[in-house]
């Protein structure tokens, strides 16, 4: 019987994910998937609700490959997937936010941070702490004067196109 939790789309992606054999291939796959299919700046919405399921499966596979390649528990908690110091990497992102006072720029930074650093790219203990700082700042920038902007101004800010049925 057909159902929505075992679809052809998921099967196709699962086959592709199972064929990943190295961390570098997994990283490339995840980066490309996140660029194409996640966030408001994604290239396509074709995968619809399957996006989060597929992303989680790539993350799981990549996490597995990463743990098989790494020996030290310490490194799992302190280094990024490509072996850099997680604290420094996250620190760089937080530093980038320091001078931003525009909510659209800050929003772009938060989206980019999530795509680049969400585990297993960066260990969760560093990723979450960094995201908390960035999102808190975004929330502050967004809340100021939020009720004063007109819908027309907001549409222009987002670059949306109004539609009607002909």
């Amino acid at each position: 019987m057909a159902n929505w939790y075992n679809t052809e789309t998921r099967d196709e992606w699962q086959d592709q994910i199972n064929s990943l054999r190295s961390v570098s291939a997994g990283v490339e796959c995840l980066q490309s998937f996140r660029a194409d299919h996640t966030g408001p700046d994604r290239k396509t919405y074709d995968l619809k609700k399957e996006v989060t399921w597929i992303e989680s499966r790539i993350e799981m596979r990549l996490g597995q490959l990463h743990s098989e390649e790494l020996i030290s528990d310490e490194d799992l908690l302190s280094k990024t997937i490509d072996g850099k110091c997680a604290k420094e990497v996250v620190g760089e992102w937080v530093k980038k936010a320091a001078d931003i006072d525009c909510k659209i720029k800050m929003e772009g930074l938060c989206i980019a941070y999530r795509k680049a650093c969400k585990p297993p790219m960066v260990p969760i203990n560093y990723f979450a702490a960094g995201e908390k700082i960035l999102i808190s700042k975004l929330m502050r920038l967004r809340a100021i004067g939020a009720l004063d902007q007109t819908v027309e101004e907001l549409r222009e800010m987002r670059g949306v196109t109004r539609l009607s049925v002909q």
Partner: peptide
């Protein structure tokens, strides 16, 4: 009815549309 980044969106009233425009993600 709006289109952004290739996707179409429907809104029944302005307050909800405003919320989405503020925080689309």
């Amino acid at each position: 009815f709006l289109e952004m980044n290739g996707k179409r969106f429907a809104f029944s009233e302005g307050h909800g549309e405003r919320q989405w425009l503020q925080e689309p993600e």
